[in-house]
Design a protein around this nucleic acid. Structure first.
Lengths: 159, 159
DNA sequence: GTCAACGCTTACGTAAACGTCAACCTTGAC
DNA sequence: GTCAAGGTTGACGTTTACGTAAGCGTTGAC
């Protein structure tokens, strides 16, 4: 009776998808609220199909590249509303390119901020070297940077 | 009686500072609410000194590099709380370096997203080229990119 | 005298993406 | 029987940096 779990008929509970994609039930319900997912029901319980799973993947991919949920919904809707895949692909492509150029702009902003920050750091370092060289953070600073990196890695692994 | 407007005794109205720094009165009052500014009063009206002006400059600089108002306040407080400029400078330096490394991390995230986006774009372009090459956006896309740039420039000039 | 311009305070509204209860149902194990 | 595990639906809370009135006082121009 227990069909192959890899079969396309297979369904998923909310928890299973959450575990698989490191999401929370609250998030999936939220996406449903916003119209990005429409899982079937078994009584009250949500039952996710393979299609739903794919949509969820697309949602998370969209989030990773910085799209908002409403933008993601627009794209998702494109795939549903009509059968002409080509037109949808063209619009998706446009959206992606827009996002890419927005990200490039953001990167430039960051670079600008970094320049300003480094100038400020340089000034501070020089002044500090003049009046209180002993206060200049060095190895301690490096350690802390390492710690930050490790924290980041832990986060990436899901806490 | 009208002293030199560049003299250090000179004071500023909220509007003058707003015009000079492209801010809104609401913003300055908000900063005051949050304890970042403490202008004098003339009756009810706020009167900003040169010191206040400098603080505002620092606030806006902090914002440009992505610091939150509370972080900015911490830094500002450092300069007030005690007379030992060196220790404050050391802490500011540390804060700035932290922010710089956070920004570098952000930039890496953006680069990652850009890679993912470009892969998606490439796939879409290839598929589209196969089935509906006429739908491939080209010069139109370039025009739009230009438009985005111009909009950005306008924004930078204050609309 | 009255209208606009500027200032003030108080306070609710906004956007995004959920987190965090509360209160309840159901199913299986023991 | 009852307890835990997992599901459900509201619905309010969180954060940030202000925007946007509402309602009122003051001052200067005409």
């Amino acid at each position: 009776m227990a069909a192959d779990l890899r079969r396309p008929e297979r369904t998923f509970s909310i928890r299973q998808l959450c575990n698989e994609f490191k999401a929370t039930p609250r998030a999936l319900r939220f996406y449903e609220d916003k119209g990005l997912l429409t899982p079937a029901r078994e009584g009250l319980n949500r039952v996710y199909s393979h299609k739903d799973r794919v949509r969820l993947q697309l949602i998370l991919r969209g989030k990773r590249v910085g799209l908002s949920l409403s933008e993601i919904r627009e794209l998702l809707d494109l795939y549903d509303e009509n059968d002409d895949g080509a037109a949808q692909m063209a619009r998706s492509l446009k959206k992606f390119r827009e996002r890419a150029s927005a990200l490039e702009q953001q990167r430039e902003d960051i670079d600008g901020a970094l320049i300003e920050l480094r100038e400020a750091c340089d000034r501070l370092e020089k002044r500090l070297a003049e009046i209180r060289p002993d206060l200049l953070p060095r190895s301690a600073d490096y350690e802390q940077l390492l710690r930050a990196r490790l924290d980041g890695a832990e986060m990436a692994l899901g806490k």
